[in-house]
């Protein structure tokens, strides 16, 4: 298995605070890797460096063997990195289909087209993506008035528009009900397997992490302190001490 994403020696400081110091990991096609750790451990910084929102101080990020370190978010995206945000980010004044159409038109470099109506451009392809996430029946509703769980699905469809090799999901299930969480992650895992997409996600819900990740990586104070199968990480005493606690807040703990 050749790595879709290979990260080595990734570093970033903000005003003397070492947010991320020397993180290294790799991720293969179809694999789901969870990134966990206490608030402020450097997860978001790490994430933002992978898609170019933050420029690293050092280290390399390789996508399919190509160095993408320090590239702009939109260039990284064009090379096949999709992203969903912790707080849902969609274009609220458009319909669901138009949201996906915008991403598709951008991918096909047709945003400067001046002689066609945008609402008819790339519509069939958008509907196909919406069918994949189970949102085709709501294609013509306004995005701004959708229920939260549905928005998350729309976001997923948008993130699939550039036929990503790598999908970065920042707390994908935050704010969702338990059943919706399971549904969304099962859908993500299926799409990842079918299309060979590597998925990296951060998450605070341990039921989601231990239920859906193939591998788990733990950050603390900018360093990787553990990596392995969910079972191994779950029984790691150090991880329990700094992050997981007694286990009363997830799983069969109550």
């Amino acid at each position: 298995m050749s790595a879709v994403l290979a990260v080595d020696g990734l570093r970033k400081s903000f005003g003397g605070v070492h947010a991320v110091q020397g993180v290294q990991f790799a991720l293969g096609a179809g694999e789901m890797l969870a990134l966990i750790g206490p608030n402020g451990a450097g997860k978001s910084t790490c994430f933002n460096m992978l898609n170019g929102q933050i420029r690293p101080d050092g280290g390399t990020v390789m996508l399919d063997g190509r160095d993408i370190t320090g590239m702009k978010p939109r260039d990284v995206w064009r090379l096949g990195v999709g992203r969903t945000f912790q707080i849902t980010a969609t274009f609220a004044s458009f319909t669901v289909a138009e949201n996906v159409q915008l991403a598709l038109s951008s991918y096909h470099r047709r945003l400067t087209t001046l002689w066609r109506r945008a609402s008819s451009l790339d519509r069939d392809e958008a509907l196909a993506l919406l069918r994949q996430v189970g949102m085709a029946d709501q294609a013509d509703r306004q995005t701004g008035i959708l229920a939260y769980g549905d928005l998350k699905r729309v976001e997923l469809a948008i993130a699939l528009a550039n036929r990503p090799r790598l999908l970065l999901m920042d707390e994908p299930t935050a704010g969702m009900a338990p059943q919706e969480r399971v549904g969304l992650m099962a859908l993500t895992a299926r799409l990842a397997r079918e299309q060979g997409i590597a998925v990296l996600f951060t998450e605070h819900d341990m039921d989601v992490v231990f239920g859906h990740a193939d591998r788990v990586m733990v950050l603390e104070r900018g360093r990787k302190i553990a990596e392995g199968t969910p079972e191994a990480v779950r029984s790691d005493e150090r991880v329990q001490a700094i992050y997981l606690g007694s286990g009363a807040m997830y799983g069969e703990g109550h």
Binding site: E171, H204, I242, L244, S246, A248, M249, Y250
Partner: peptide, 13 residues
């Protein structure tokens, strides 16, 4: 408890 790590959630409780 939203958005907090399991350990902090325990402290919150």
């Amino acid at each position: 408890s939203e958005g907090l790590s399991p350990l902090i959630v325990e402290q919150m409780a």
